[in-house]
Simulated scan of single mutants.
Amino acid sequence: MSVRLNEEELERWQKARGGTERKELGAWVRAVVEEALQGHPGVPGDVPKMPEVNEAAYLQLVQATSDLRELVTALRERGELPPHIDEVISRLGEAALSTRGLSTPVPGVGTAR
């Protein structure tokens, strides 16, 4: 689904989203619509809000996972891939999820490519 907004609307929506803990505009729109339809805040299965200290750790772990994936891609191309590297990437992704209080894997996070 896509929604077209003019500049004023986008600015208003971004400002309203900025007052919440939502990072993505799409996630904010979904939460607002679900709240309007259900009469209570939140979206079923929503990711729990995380304390700031965990958010910083999460962002660092996500960046480290991304950097490691790039390194693995380069090593794969050269045929110099260390054994068990996929397990290392998965553990790093799981650590990121753990900081968010998530126990189930999220597609694309913690999985080697």
Rank of each mutant, 00 (worst) to 15 (best):
M1C: 06
N6F: 13
N6V: 12
E7L: 14
E8Q: 15
L10G: 02
E11A: 12
Q14S: 11
Q14Y: 00
A16K: 06
E21D: 13
R22S: 14
L25T: 13
G26Q: 07
G26E: 14
G26H: 03
A27Y: 00
W28F: 15
W28N: 12
V29K: 02
V29R: 01
R30K: 11
V32Y: 01
E34P: 07
E35A: 07
E35T: 15
A36E: 14
A36I: 01
G39R: 00
G39I: 05
H40S: 14
P41K: 07
G42N: 11
V43N: 04
D46M: 12
E52R: 03
E52C: 00
E52N: 03
V53Q: 07
V53P: 00
V53D: 14
E55Y: 02
E55T: 03
A56N: 01
A57Q: 13
L61P: 09
V62C: 08
A64G: 02
S66E: 09
D67A: 09
L68K: 07
E70V: 10
E70T: 11
L71F: 01
L71D: 01
L71R: 10
V72G: 02
V72W: 03
V72Y: 03
T73W: 00
R76S: 08
R78F: 04
G79Y: 07
E80Q: 12
E87G: 09
R91W: 12
L92P: 10
L92A: 10
E94N: 04
E94C: 05
A96T: 10
L97S: 09
S98L: 13
R100M: 15
P107A: 14
G108Y: 05
A112C: 14
